[in-house]
């Protein structure tokens, strides 16, 4: 699941040390020139004779396309489509669900949909599209043989991601001048302004994106978390960990003995495991969790980790963070 991807995939990797060697060449690019083309996240130009209409998309990518009126014929998600943050509020009638677990895609069913395009984010750190990464079932990876795979790069910004999928939607024939699309963009730019204002009023506030787990504490590396890079760009001091795991640079791994290595004023808690009571529970379970002053002070907020794709979702999450930043103290961690 995209959700747990940076964690689960790490585990899968470490357990299958020898499973490397699969060639992660992105889908073969048709050589014949045609009227449709799109610059893939890895920089390659993907072309087709005619504009694709039967699209299979990964969860968040499907949500992005649907926000511009492009409805895929099938989606594959990393968890139940009823709980996937990208899909749970969407009307999925008429769309085949091809997977509801990370790394598992029903390729047979996918083939029966006769797709002419597969859409999944490009992950630069793994050099693979969503659904084709290391750790995914070999059988599921055959998805790439059904049609060309394209996706916007999970690069440096969610804004780039949203714009990239807007471009893809336009290339697929979407009309993006509809009033509700404009309204959604307006809501987003308002949310960004409010966020910037809140951040500017707390110039010394530092935040750290974290995900506590039973055996260790994960500290997010903003370089591979586009939403954190966006926050930094808008002025928020998101701490950069100084020793990310070289094999899986999404995180720096801290043993529980070293949980207090960083002392932020506010903890951005991995939204996939965040609950209202999580902080108190971890404080009880791990002797050193409350050695992080922000945790002890209860200064925690949910961080929408690795799933955002649309202006609408980003706006809603930004509003929540703006509220948390307004309530945060600048000297909690000092």
């Amino acid at each position: 699941m995209r959700i747990w991807r940076p964690i689960v995939a790490a585990a899968v990797l470490s357990l299958t040390l020898a499973a490397c060697g699969s060639t992660d060449t992105p889908a073969a690019t048709p050589t014949s020139a045609g009227p449709w083309q799109f610059t893939n996240g890895n920089g390659e130009v993907v072309k087709a004779d005619k504009t694709p209409t039967r699209i299979i998309a990964h969860a968040g990518e499907a949500a992005a396309l649907m926000s511009f009126g492009i409805k895929p014929v099938g989606v594959y998600a990393d968890e139940s489509v009823k709980t996937d943050p990208n899909l749970k509020d969407l009307d999925l009638t008429g769309i085949e669900i091809l997977g509801e677990e990370w790394g598992k895609i029903d390729v047979e069913k996918a083939a029966s949909l006769r797709p002419d395009l597969i859409v999944g984010d490009w992950w630069p750190a793994e050099k693979a599209h969503s659904g084709l990464e290391e750790g995914v079932d070999e059988k599921s990876k055959k998805l790439k043989e059904l049609a060309p795979v394209v996706g916007v790069s999970q690069g440096k910004s969610i804004v780039d991601l949203a714009e990239g999928y807007e471009k893809l939607a336009v290339s697929l024939g979407a009309k993006v001048d509809a009033p509700e699309i404009a309204a959604s963009k307006k809501k987003f730019s308002d949310a960004v302004e409010a966020f910037k204002t809140a951040v500017a009023s707390k110039p010394n506030l530092t935040v750290l994106a974290m995900s506590p787990a039973d055996d260790k504490v994960y500290v997010a590396n903003p370089e591979y978390a586009p939403e954190l890079l966006d926050f930094q760009k808008w002025g928020l001091k998101v701490v950069n960990p100084d020793k990310p795991d070289p094999g899986f640079p999404y995180w720096e791994n801290l043993s529980w003995e070293n949980a207090d290595k960083y002392q932020p004023d506010l903890i951005l808690w991995d939204g996939r495991s965040y609950t209202a009571t999580a902080n108190a529970e971890w404080g009880k379970k791990q002797p050193t969790w409350f050695a992080i002053k922000a945790a002890k002070a209860g200064a925690v907020a949910s961080w929408p980790a690795y799933w955002l794709h649309t202006y609408g979702h980003f706006a809603a999450e930004l509003d929540k963070l703006t509220t948390a930043i307004k309530a945060a103290g600048e000297n909690v961690g000092s």
Binding site: D215, K216, E252, N253, L254, S255, N258, K261
Partner: peptide, 14 residues
């Protein structure tokens, strides 16, 4: 396992 992967740890099973 505790000292080879600072600031993280390797599990003793590994």
């Amino acid at each position: 396992g505790r000292v080879v992967a600072r600031p993280g740890e390797l599990q003793v099973g590994v």
